[in-house]
Nucleic acid binder design. Structure first.
Lengths: 343, 343
DNA sequence: CTGAAAGCGCTTACAG
DNA sequence: CTGAAAGCGCTTACAG
């Protein structure tokens, strides 16, 4: 592997000049710069990242921590890939690399992140799957490393975050169902401690009140965030004596399992039970009857996350903002047939 | 952030001894080692990765390059997350970190990988979505960086790879359909230049011959590797005057779209058209009628990949093998109802 | 068993 | 505009 020394020797100039030429410093003769650039391309030289990071005290890399546990495995589908596409695009404009850091099931997310942070593997971090009480937040604050969370936490959030507009979804879904005459509306939320479950549940209860509908705690159904979870939601609904006439889901994949369970019972979504799904994805588009759900751009979400993160990085003073970005990402209703019925 | 200097000063010993104690060198007084370990835990010290990498000439990180393009976005679902789980587990045992390196749609995979490699961002690389003629292979060979491919290429493969046993799948599927009396069997393959399409097509043609069945080029249907692709496969099949009685799919997600298209035409899989899917996933399990498909463990595949990679790394002489690992990953038939019919 | 020193590959004040 | 030199935070022969 060719280093800066070899390149300098090849050009018969000093390594300092080579470095300055490559880094676009203004105080370099344009003729010299041209020769350096050409030779670098020819010899396939790029600065060794360890040497550069050590000297600069920064890695030019941003970490995106994801959890590859069983739950996310079955529900996330293409969510992260879409977001990653947006992130890489926005970060690349500022010469930042994105590295995805998968925390395995067997390791505590807090400990994993701590290792990453103290070793200074990356300059900034994006965390996802935020818990209601997420110990990673104080860890990152204490370490003083710029970060943004994809998802709110339960605390007083004095940090940057971007989250889906669960409130908007809950209100739009409930208002729509109420307009069709539904009075008994259930909601399916994840049974883990992930914060979005709490957020969505609260928004749902709030939406019921706003529409003058009674709240029945039995109508909040906890389930795994997966197809199978959707299936068990179906089980629960079918077993209720006072069965709801509508259900709102908070994970795309749940719809698949619920459709299946209903079908086994001879019931049809939109005729026997109104179903409102969550995120419109390739799967939702192929369900029959078509699922009423909510649309968003994963790419734009990724871009928004990147912008929010850049605004926390002192290394980018022109983008830096004193106030942390805290943004709810809007989701737009897509009308399907799964809640066509009126009651 | 506390460095080794601070830690040494705090303990009133030299940084050399601190380093040796932390790195488990035998030539350290056990009492000293204990004090160092305790102080490191107390002060939250871990060696700066840039400093360590520069000195050692190795990063202790393995890169897993994935492509976050539109196609993979809609087909990969949980495939990578599962594999990543297996990879992290196996690599962690050798103190290697896994970093996922997403190549964005807009960048050429070859150029992206070259940047990663020459900057020495990682010690070894796993590439995926191999093309028939994949320029990344010669790049990695020339750079002399240990690597393994998830997927074969079209060339004479003198490098390590692990791939799914497409041959086994094609033969099992065709033999099973032939036994049920099918003589006109179609296959759906991806329309991109990804190598698995070629591999599967060849295996399919081979399997037809072995079962004494004629080969009709019209029965090879190219489609996008997505739900929508499955839908267009349905379109193609329905439009054929000489319609096949069975179809074998090479992507899990295709089944969803095909089911949908058949349903729209009033046809039922397993009654009007025999369908054999590819990988059993959470989605396949929820299709109705149940999809006949093939089962594998993503976790084991990840572990196998890691082992194959470690065997190429001179840094692990006890695992090192002169012969590159080249392994077809077996897939086991899971009987469903989607090919129940006999003809 | 421990300390002092060299050096990994860069970038960047500092002289000239 | 360029070169020589210092130094980022580690690890590791080398002395003692």
């Amino acid at each position: 592997m060719v280093g800066i020394r070899r390149l300098a020797q090849h050009l018969d100039i000093s390594i300092g000049t080579v470095s300055r030429a490559l880094n676009g410093r203004p105080d370099v003769n344009e003729e010299t710069r041209k020769r350096v650039l050409e030779a670098a391309a020819e010899l396939g030289y790029a600065p060794n990242q360890a040497g550069r990071s050590l000297r600069r005290g920064a890695t030019s890399a941003v970490g995106f921590m994801i959890e590859s546990n069983d739950e996310s495995e079955s529900n996330s589908d293409n969510f992260f890939l879409g977001v990653i596409g947006g992130l890489t695009g926005a970060l690349a404009q500022h010469n930042l690399d994105l590295v995805v850091l998968p925390c395995s099931t067997s390791e505590d997310p807090h400990d994993y992140l701590q290792r990453i942070v103290v070793r200074r593997l990356v300059d900034a971090v994006i965390i996802s799957a935020t818990q209601r009480n997420d110990r990673r937040i104080p860890l990152l604050k204490k370490a003083g490393i710029p970060f943004i969370a994809l998802g709110r936490t339960g605390g007083a959030d004095q940090h940057a975050w971007v989250d889906l507009d669960f409130e908007g979804v809950a209100h739009k879904a409930v208002a729509r169902l109420a307009a069709k005459g539904h009075k008994q509306i259930a909601v399916a939320v994840p049974d883990s401690d992930i914060n979005l479950g709490h957020v969505f549940r609260n928004a749902f209860v709030d939406a019921l009140a706003q529409n003058g509908l009674p709240f029945d705690p039995d109508f909040i159904i906890c389930a795994k965030s997966s197809e199978h979870g959707g299936y068990t939601v179906g089980d629960t609904l079918l077993a209720m004596k006072n069965r709801p006439t509508a259900v709102v889901l908070v994970y795309e994949m749940m719809a698949i399992g619920l459709y299946r369970r209903l079908s086994e019972a001879g019931l049809v979504p939109g005729r026997d039970l109104a179903v409102v799904g969550f995120r419109e994805g390739p799967l939702a588009r192929f369900l029959s009857p078509a699922l009423t759900c909510f649309r968003m751009s994963l790419l734009d979400l990724g871009t928004g996350l990147a912008e929010g993160l850049l605004a926390t990085m002192p290394a980018f003073p022109d983008l830096y903002r004193a106030e942390p970005v805290q943004k709810l990402w809007p989701m737009e209703l897509v009308e399907g047939e799964s809640d066509a019925m009126e009651v």
